[in-house]
Amino acid sequence: MSLGDLQVLLVEPSHMQAQLVLRMLAHLGVSRVQHYERAGEALAAMRETRPGAVISSLYLPDMAGTELVTAMRHDEELERVPFILISSETRPQVLDPIRQSGACCIVAKPFTEAQLARALHSAIDLLTPEEAFDAVEVEHLRVLLVDDSYASRRHIRRLLEEMGLEEIIEAENGREAVIKLADTMVDLVLTDYNMPEMDGRALVEYIRTQSWQGSVPILMITSEHDQGRLAAVEKAGVSAICDKPFEARNIRQLIAQSLCA
């Protein structure tokens, strides 16, 4: 799929901002674009004709962008539609629900055409999954997915299933993951950092020092940006760390590298 094949729905109440995005999209070759100022109108249009990707502002007249993407993720017809947020918001507590929803990209204002193009290519990667493995029978591999966000687990699980991985075990936090690891052998652990009861760092430390599966690859997918905390996770023995939101191509490569090492 190319950018010219992508059908985009833009939700932007500002006329000036909408015109800027529309000009950039046209220059990138994206000609099929619907523009709405309100989230309710956008949702109704999506349900009539599912778009290839949604680009939205965070603050909308009738609901927040977080509510819009949540509504999409609770609709079976729209839950797989890539969501791109464009915002000048920087507060982690505001952006975290977007990151946890499985948004494919957050584009910070001010932004360039190249940054918008990268976000659109990230959406295309989600829509057109590639084979990540050559010589491994992935359907027999078992993955433990640990995240307290149901939306995030669903998003990552879909990506894993598109890669051909069939045996996926889910846990809502590190403590639940420890229980599952006690009697179930896994080939890969994918975990969030911030979770109740037992966070990702504690889980990594437990696996590396106390679990009978101490050498299992551990990939952390997180919205945590505190460098001190992330350094502690690396010291604890995590195999790789990936930011939320993530590009599908990057996460596929990290998973493939972890499983094929």
Rank of each mutant, 00 (worst) to 15 (best):
G4K: 10
D5Q: 13
D5M: 03
E12T: 03
P13D: 09
M16K: 10
A18T: 02
A18R: 00
L20M: 14
L20P: 01
L20V: 15
V21I: 15
R23W: 04
A26Q: 08
H27G: 08
V30Y: 00
R32Y: 02
V33L: 08
E37I: 04
R38I: 06
R38N: 12
E41W: 06
A44G: 03
A44T: 14
R47L: 11
R47A: 11
E48C: 10
E48M: 11
R50S: 12
G52H: 13
V54E: 11
V54Q: 11
S57T: 04
S57R: 00
Y59E: 14
M63Q: 05
T66Q: 05
E67L: 02
L68P: 02
L68G: 05
A71R: 14
M72K: 09
E76K: 04
E77S: 12
L78N: 01
R80S: 15
F83D: 04
I84G: 09
L85Q: 05
S87K: 01
P92A: 12
V94D: 06
V94Y: 03
R99Y: 08
Q100W: 00
S101F: 09
F111V: 02
T112E: 00
T112W: 04
Q115G: 01
A119G: 04
I124C: 08
L126S: 13
L127N: 10
P129N: 06
A132Y: 08
A132E: 13
D134I: 09
V136R: 07
V136G: 05
V136T: 14
V138N: 03
V143I: 14
S149G: 00
Y150P: 05
A151D: 07
A151F: 02
R157I: 09
R158I: 12
R158V: 11
E161K: 13
E161C: 05
E161M: 14
E162Y: 06
I168S: 07
E170P: 00
A171S: 13
N173M: 06
N173K: 01
R175E: 13
A177L: 10
K180S: 11
T184M: 03
M185Q: 12
L188D: 01
L190F: 00
T191C: 14
Y193P: 06
M195Y: 00
P196D: 03
E197N: 04
E197I: 06
G200I: 02
L203D: 00
L203Q: 06
V204F: 02
R208M: 04
R208L: 07
T209E: 12
T209L: 03
S211L: 15
W212S: 13
Q213S: 04
V216F: 14
L219E: 07
M220R: 03
M220E: 03
S223H: 07
E224Q: 13
E224C: 04
D226N: 14
Q227Y: 09
Q227F: 01
L230F: 08
A232W: 02
E234A: 15
E234Q: 11
G237E: 07
S239K: 06
I241H: 08
I241V: 12
I241T: 11
I241Y: 14
E247Y: 03
R249M: 02
Q253R: 15
L254H: 09
S258M: 13
C260A: 12
C260S: 15
C260D: 13
